[in-house]
Amino acid sequence: MWSYQHSNFTVHQFAALKDNYIYLIDAHNSGALIAVDPAEAVSISRFCKAHDRTLTHIINTHHHWDHTDGNKALKQKFGCKVIGPANDAHRIPAIDIAVSEKSPPRIAGLEITVLQLPGHTSGHIAYVIDDALFCGDVLFGAGCGRVFEGTRTEMWNSLTRLAELAGETRIYCAHEYTLANLEFAQTVDPSNGLLVERTVRTKQLRADHQPTIPSTIADEISTNPFLRPLNAEFCRYYASLRGVDANPEKVFTDIRDRKDRF
């Protein structure tokens, strides 16, 4: 487990399954204890037992099983409220409260913003709490989610919305994919010095069995190949090499297609 301090809460991070992360938001000024995308129940249950705490809420970003498999067991054990996207409510196990941008969750002591981010799935959402972003499978360290149910246009629009957040916003995504993503990024953006530096840091972290997440919005804008199309100079460079339109969305689409084949 790793822990990160924010002004109003602490985020506890647990490795799960092959490469998932589960997060536990521990509010400072209330008894709220919130699991984010519990792929399984064991990690959260052990924490609660060790610290004599009760899980009060679960928040899900989307319906995929490796984000929701712990819902039923945790709800049965703790009686916690399960919160998930309104557009995906019928596919969220044990859901109690459906939320959207217009109807965000109300949890004592925390101000939570919901962002609707279709692309990976049709109903995918993210939660922003102060300077923390819980984004499921939309944005990864140096990567983004596959487009399963939405369109590439929807995914691009979702990523650009996240890029508008403050640069210091910490990104708590749901998978440890960063090193593999950086290998692909080097084939897209080989002259990017910041990308080279990030790769060195990431290799050292993984060698030390440390997570590469959270990253920040600023890190992703400067090194993530799926956000680099926001940079006009990069778009021109990439378009000239690949023979595509220098339009940011067109460049993103070409990069996403390449990653699917990588």
Rank of each mutant, 00 (worst) to 15 (best):
I171M: 03
D189M: 02
Q186M: 14
A180R: 05
Y172R: 01
T178L: 11
A163T: 05
A166C: 10
T160W: 05
A174N: 13
H175Q: 12
N181K: 04
R161D: 03
E183I: 11
A180C: 12
V188N: 01
L182H: 01
I171E: 03
Y172V: 08
A163V: 06
S191C: 11
F184M: 03
E176L: 07
E164R: 15
C173H: 09
L159M: 07
A174F: 02
Y172W: 10
I171L: 12
F184A: 07
H175K: 14
R170A: 08
Y172G: 05
A180H: 11
P190T: 09
A185G: 07
E164N: 13
L182S: 01
L159V: 09
T187E: 11
E176V: 10
L182T: 00
R170V: 06
Y177D: 10
E164W: 08
E164L: 15
E176T: 09
E168H: 15
R170S: 12
G167D: 14
E168T: 12
E183M: 13
A166P: 12
E164K: 14
E164F: 06
P190R: 05
L182K: 00
E183R: 13
T187G: 10
L162I: 12
V188H: 01
E168F: 10
L162M: 13
T187M: 06
A174Q: 07
A166S: 14
T187P: 03
L165C: 09
T187Q: 14
I171N: 00
L159Y: 11
L165G: 05
D189T: 04
S191Y: 11
T169Y: 00
P190E: 07
N181V: 08
L162V: 09
L179D: 04
R170K: 15
N181R: 08
E176R: 04
A174V: 03
F184C: 06
L182A: 07
T187I: 06
D189H: 05
T169P: 11
F184V: 05
L179F: 11
T169Q: 00
A163D: 04
E183C: 09
L179N: 08
E183K: 13
F184W: 07
